[in-house]
Design a protein around this nucleic acid. Structure first.
Lengths: 136, 136
DNA sequence: GTAGGAGTTGAAGCGCGCTTCAACGCAAGG
DNA sequence: CCTTGCGTTGAAGCGCGCTTCAACTCCTAC
């Protein structure tokens, strides 16, 4: 960290480093309302707080599990609605989870089938190796 | 099946029905070389054979596990190369599988974290319910 | 004063994976 | 003959999730 600030805030570059999101993506997420408008320093530049980082970490988990931006946006909007929306958020997450698990099962079934294909190819390769002496 | 054909071939509509791929997608896949050029009836229309269906089923498994079209295309091209490419195909599939498993570990970790969030919200909801008598 | 580096904005662009469109062909049925 | 339905083609369009670009503003160091 080149310029350590006395408050715990981070520049966009540092936040980018920590989250793995590019500065452009950070600005993009803010623009579309996925991240609440970030505080600015006296120079007009963004200063990310710990709370922002925590929220982004959560967003990243949603993204990792395949939630589309529209879904994350819906969650972000509920969050802005405060305590009254807790139940709705719970439902949103629950539905997402069920969906992820369902998809995961489909993926695993396909992966098993691919396994079979691999086994098939392995037999082929063995035959080729075995034949190499006998063939022309 | 409205018009059963004496050979076992299928129209594009029937193939679409069976695979879940739209006719447009079937044509698109053929155009980009993901599916080998399909035989035509005397009227110039596509007639899908059993072998085509089997290949598509395999492609769908690759797609379900998140392989991008470029990857499937690479596999399709190897397949056209015949027996000589069996080892390369094996490696391609192996790399893909390792990647899928790795990614799904990340997904599962995120899902666990989301579980925690859900548990957190559930506690909140209980508190709200419990407080409803005591609060204004 | 001036150059460099990090940041800002709005708008345009891009790669992916299809989907849609427009114009046409062909065979069967009324 | 003419409509209906299913198919064909090449080209354009689209939604998603960013990324890139151009023009500008600050601050710091020299």
């Amino acid at each position: 960290m080149a310029t350590e600030r006395i408050d715990g805030t981070l520049t966009i570059a540092e936040t980018s480093e920590l989250t793995g999101l590019s500065p452009s993506t950070l600005r993009y997420y803010e623009r579309i309302g996925l991240i609440d408008s970030v505080e600015r320093g006296p120079d007009g530049r963004r200063r990310y707080q710990a709370a922002d980082l925590a929220w982004m970490a959560f967003l990243l988990r949603l993204r990792t599990t395949g939630m589309p931006i529209q879904g994350m946006l819906a969650f972000a909007e509920l969050r802005r609605g405060g305590d009254a929306t807790v139940r709705a958020r719970l439902e949103l997450l629950g539905r997402h989870q069920a969906q992820v698990r369902k998809q995961y099962e489909a993926v695993m079934r396909s992966l098993d089938a691919i396994d079979d294909k691999i086994a098939h190819y392995e037999r082929l390769v063995e035959e080729q190796d075995g034949d190499s002496g006998r063939q022309a």
